[in-house]
Structures are given as structure tokens and as C-alpha cells.
């Protein structure tokens, strides 16, 4: 137990350092951005009609004249005190914006995460266990096709087919247009989240299935599977008793590592579906020079991805007898 606490403690220190680094990198990129916040957010024409005084006020608002070091340290100081600042674009506290966006994105990502995990693992196990057979060829073909397809393009194709031609699903957004927030039901949300989640799932499956297949194929060629065969175990029993057990560890790593990919994919997919999630907010913040919001989103998403990997590491200790028993003996 003490060992595991130490392990978690070390990981948390690492996480703090990581978040610091990530926020600094995001800040530096933003500072180096050639976009002029006034021109992008106010517009060239509007700026031309403004007085010098008004422009100076706006420059103050967007922090154009503050030295970068001061800006970053100011943001960092507030952040450590628990204040993520106010979004310049949405004119709301960053925590509120992220809270709302994360909520609608979480639906999407959780759905995609579970579907791609379960489906990817199943397909990977089947392909690996039946390597070289028809099932394997079909699954591999699917994975290659999907892996070489950009997520946003797939999103467009699904949108065209299911929303435009067939009219089965809404063309975008997370709730019905013009509906009162109070009257929006869970089924409304699921209905709107379906296509973007499907896109993310389809792309996520390929990666997980291919990696799982590789592991499963290795397992099927291992000494212990050969011995299980020699002991008269059926292929079914070998896959279920030895295959799944041994593919579990890499599968956990894959599953939690895929959080980052789903996060990344959601940025593009949300853009295509005009889905007001975290990804879309990140794009807006980046293009609109909304520094507090961009840094807030960067830190929160990095923390979520890191958290996923941390959970995977901790689960390893629970699942892998070598770690579990090794710890118990110390």
C-alpha cells in the first residue's frame, strides 16, 4: 500500500510539471501567433471607424501591450489560486465555459471511448486468433481503410449520408435549434451526439483493433498456447482462457492511451458537426487569441489525458500479478 501511495505521489508531481510545461508551450505558441487579436475579433472595417482611445481600450482588453512574461505569470498566479480567469470571447469565467463544454463533450467522448474500446478489442482478438483467415483479412482491410481516412472527412461523409440524404440525424449542434434549455431531454442530447460519436468510434476502433490483433497473434504463437493445444484445449477455450487474460494488460494501456486520440479527434469532429464541445471552444480560443480560455482548455485536457494514463498504470498494479505480488512481498 505504501509503495502504491509513493507511486501515485511521484506521478502527481510529474503531472504538475507536465501541466506547467504544457501551459507554457501553449502560451509561447499563442504569443508567437501572427494573428492580431483586434483584427480577428473586431474586424478591419470596424477598427477603421474607431477612435484611437477606443482602440487603446480594446488593446488593453486583449492584453496586446502587456509583456508576455507578465501575462503568463499573471495567469499562472491566478490559476494556482484557483482562478482560471475570464474568457475574452465568451465573457464568462473560463471555468464556467469549460464546465459547460466539457459536459457536452464528455457525452461524445465517453460514448466513442467505450464503443471503440469494446469493438476494437473484440475485432482485434478475433483477427489475432484467426490470423490469415478470412475474418482477419476483412478486419484488417477495414482497419487500414479507416486508418488512412482523415476523421474530418469521414465526419463529412457521414453527415452527407445520414443527415442530408437520409435525414435521419440532425445536421449539427448538441440540442434542437431554438429549444428552451429546460425542455431539452436526454434523448435529444444522445440523438445529437450520435453521429459525431459514431465518427470518433469508427476511427478509434481501427487503432485499437490493429494493436490488439498484433498482441493476440503473438499470444497465439506463444509457448503456453502451444502447450494448451497439446493438452487438448479447444481454440475457443484457448482464446477465452489464455488469450483474453494475456491481452488484458496491453488492452488496458491501449484503452487509456486512446483517450488522447479521442480528445484530438473530437476537436476536428466537433468542428464539422458544429457541436459546441470542448474541441470547438479550443479552436475558437486559438483563432480568437482568447488566452485564458486556451490555456484553461489545454491544462484541463492535458490533466484528463494524464489522468487516463495514471489510471492505466494503477490498474496494471491491480491486474498484473507480477506487480501485485511483487508489491505485497516488499
Amino acid at each position: 500500500m505504501k509503495h502504491r501511495l509513493m507511486f501515485t505521489g511521484k506521478k502527481l508531481i510529474r503531472m504538475v510539471l507536465l501541466l506547467l510545461g504544457v501551459s507554457l508551450a501553449a502560451f509561447l505558441l499563442m504569443s508567437a501567433s501572427p494573428l492580431d487579436p483586434l483584427q480577428t475579433n473586431v474586424g478591419q472595417a470596424a477598427l477603421g471607424t474607431m477612435s484611437q482611445e477606443q482602440i487603446a481600450k480594446l488593446e488593453d482588453y486583449w492584453g496586446v501591450n502587456t509583456p508576455p512574461v507578465e501575462r503568463y505569470l499573471g495567469w499562472l498566479g491566478d490559476f494556482i489560486r484557483g482562478d482560471m480567469g475570464t474568457s475574452l470571447l465568451y465573457r464568462q469565467p473560463v471555468s464556467t465555459v469549460i464546465g459547460q463544454r466539457l459536459q457536452s463533450s464528455l457525452w461524445l467522448m465517453a460514448f466513442a471511448w467505450v464503443i471503440s474500446g469494446v469493438l476494437g478489442l473484440t475485432l482485434g482478438v478475433i483477427a489475432g486468433a484467426r490470423r490469415g483467415k478470412l475474418a482477419d483479412k476483412l478486419i484488417r482491410g477495414y482497419c487500414w481503410l479507416i486508418s488512412s481516412t482523415p476523421a474530418f472527412w469521414l465526419a463529412l461523409v457521414l453527415l452527407v449520408i445520414f443527415s442530408v440524404w437520409l435525414g435521419l440525424f440532425p445536421i449539427g449542434l448538441s440540442v434542437p435549434i431554438g429549444a428552451d434549455a429546460a425542455s431539452v431531454t436526454l434523448s435529444d442530447r444522445l440523438y445529437h451526439a450520435f453521429l459525431p460519436a459514431l465518427t470518433l468510434s469508427i476511427t478509434g476502433v481501427a487503432n485499437i483493433a490493429m494493436h490488439t490483433r498484433e498482441k493476440m497473434a503473438d499470444i497465439m504463437e506463444s509457448d503456453y498456447v502451444l502447450f494448451a493445444k497439446a493438452r487438448g484445449e479447444s481454440t475457443r477455450s484457448i482464446v477465452l482462457r489464455h488469450g483474453l487474460r494475456n491481452v488484458a494488460l496491453p488492452a488496458i494501456t491501449l484503452q487509456f492511451a486512446s483517450i488522447s486520440e479521442i480528445f484530438g479527434g473530437s476537436v476536428l469532429v466537433e468542428q464539422v458537426f458544429s457541436y459546441p464541445g470542448l474541441g470547438q471552444a479550443a479552436v475558437n480560443a486559438g483563432l480568437g487569441s482568447d488566452l485564458p480560455l486556451l490555456l484553461g482548455i489545454t491544462v484541463v485536457s492535458a490533466a484528463i489525458v494524464f489522468g487516463g494514463n495514471l489510471i492505466a498504470d494503477l490498474l496494471y498494479g491491480v491486474v498484473d500479478p507480477k506487480i501485485r505480488r511483487g508489491v505485497a512481498r516488499k
Binding site: S222, D223, Y224, L226, F227, A228, K229, A230, R231, G232, E233, R241, H242, R245, N246, A248, L249, D320, P321, K322
Partner: peptide, 23 residues
């Protein structure tokens, strides 16, 4: 062979790698 292996004909393999490491 498929019917008798593991029952009437058994194999004793070389070493520990022939045991499932996680069982």
C-alpha cells in the same frame, strides 16, 4: 490425435514459458 492429446498422450514441455504467465 486431437481426441487423445491431453488425455492419453501428454506432452511435458521444456520450461516455465509453457505455462500461462497470468494464470
Amino acid at each position: 490425435a486431437a481426441a487423445v492429446r491431453g488425455k492419453e498422450i501428454v506432452l511435458v514441455p521444456q520450461g516455465v514459458t509453457y505455462l500461462d504467465p497470468l494464470m
